[in-house]
Each structure stands twice: as C-alpha cells, then as structure tokens.
Write a protein that binds this DNA or RNA. Structure first.
Lengths: 143, 143
DNA sequence: TATTGTTATACTCTATAACTATA
DNA sequence: TATAGTTATAGAGTATAACAATA
C-alpha cells in the first residue's frame, strides 16, 4: 500500500511536471503569436502551410474533424491569411497562404525561434537528452 | 532566414514532442481511470482529497474558478464519491471522500502506479534526468 | 458507393457576474 | 466591506450528422 502510494506519487510528480512544461510551452506559443492577433490554432495552421495543403489532409495532420478545418479556414480567410484554391480532384480545396499570410508566417517563425523556452533555457546537449527521453516516452505514430 | 528557420524547426520539433508526451500522459491517465466511470477532472479531484479540503482551496490547487468547483463537487456527489461537510467558519464547506470515494481513490492510485508510462518506459536514472530537464524548463510557481 | 467540404447543431469545459449567507 | 459557495449564463473549442458535389 505505502509502496504503491510511493510509486503513484513518483508517477504523479513526473507526469505533472511534464504536463506543466507542455502547458507552459503552449502558453509561450500563445503569447508569442498574440501580437499578430492570432489564436493558437490559427497560428499553428499558418505555420503548417509552407505549401498549399488539401483541407482533409490538414484535418489529418491536426488530428481533428474536417468540419473544424472548415471553421479554421473561414477564420483564416476572414483575416486575409489564406485562400481556398481548387485542386485537381474537383472535390478538393487546398488552403494556400496569401502574400499577407506568407509574411505573417515568416514573422511568426522568427518570433518562435527567438522566444522558445526549449531554446532559451536548455543547452544543445540538454535538448538532445530531452528529445531522447521524450522519444522513449511517446508511442510512435505518424508525423 | 534559413538559420532562423532551422532554429524554429528545432524548437518546434522539441516543443511538439513535449506536448505530445504530455497529451499521451493525460490520455493514459484518462484510460486508466475510465473503468471507474470517471472523467479526468473528477479523478484528479478524487486523488487530491487525501484529507477533507475546503472548496476554495481546491479551486486554488486546481487553478480554476470557485464556480467550477461547485460543478465538480455536484458531479462527485451524484456519484456518491464525496460529501460536502461544514467547516468551522460557517461559510466554508469541505469536500470529503465517502467510503466509496476512499475505495475508488485507493484503486485509482493503484492503477496509476501500475500503468504510468513514466514508470513503465523509463529507468530510474532516466526519470531523474527527465525531472531535472523539466525543472529547468518550467517557471517556478506554487505547488 | 465512397469521399470532400459545408452546414446546422450540440456538447464539454470553463469563466464571469450577480446573488446569499456569513465574517 | 470582504469572502465562500451557488446559480445562471455565455463563450471557446470541437465533434456529430445530414447534405451536395464529385469520384
């Protein structure tokens, strides 16, 4: 009982730190992109659009429903950051960054590179060690 | 530009792994407690109630609004896991586990100890290394 | 028949504001 | 006047189901 409790406490402590670190990472990202008037999910999508992407594929990459991509696309279009362009298969629409979107993407990428906690607080060796540990922890899945 | 992009990519890769590891940790916890019919937030609250806790204090510990604690308490009471007991200060109500709640708490603690990924996938040294790295990453705040 | 994107709708999580009982 | 808990309500985020166009 007290042995199990000790194991539980250890697991909880580490898990909480992990979750807290991740939440802080998300909060940092949110703060970093806030000056651009972008909620986190729009900013993530913008960063993914290095090249035009079919909406259903974006749904796969973001692990969400297609209907939610419609929602994101609407909001990104309202801000003038993307346009829907027709694909070869006429059912498909691709999201493509506008010039304004490209500019924003570049600025966001810069800001993230400058402000990322994993870059600011860890040395190169520490980042490698962290990556190795996290890999052991995470179930392998598609990229 | 390509230097910044490289830094951005490195930051993004590590950040994504961190977030993915945390999400997996949450998902594992959710799966672990699902057999008890408990959503994550109720299970977390149950684990915190090692001793009766004033509702406002639980709000502090969970970093959420008092009104949400009312919500949690209602749902925990519906399931017969806690009761509201009056405090010395007559404005205060404490949440206290029922016998059933105590039993569930013990079972959950066991299940978490058995199934935690940070315990199953990492050696003791690795856990210590991970804890050290996460500490560097996380802004110090109250416990 | 299956797939893409859209629409309408609904659900979960969580907060804000106003309220009451008490301090 | 300030604090604890409650209530009503609202917003964000996201999913489900039904649908039209296309394959």
């Amino acid at each position: 009982m007290s042995d199990r409790d000790a194991r539980h406490d250890q697991a909880r402590g580490l898990s909480q730190m992990l979750i807290r670190a991740a939440e802080q990472t998300k909060a940092d990202f949110a703060e970093t992109v806030a000056p651009f008037g972008l909620p986190v999910h729009l900013a993530r999508a913008v960063l993914m659009l290095t090249t035009p992407v079919p909406m259903h594929e974006l749904a796969d990459r973001l692990a969400c429903d297609r209907s939610y991509i419609t929602n994101l696309a609407d909001r990104l279009e309202e801000r003038g950051l993307v346009t829907r362009v027709p694909g070869a298969d006429r059912r498909v629409k691709l999201l493509e960054l506008t010039d304004s979107g490209l500019a924003v993407r570049s600025q966001i990428a810069d800001a993230v590179a400058e402000r990322s906690m994993v870059l600011l607080r860890l040395t190169n060796e520490e980042r490698q060690a962290l990556a190795r540990l996290l890999e052991k922890l995470v179930v392998t899945q598609r990229d």
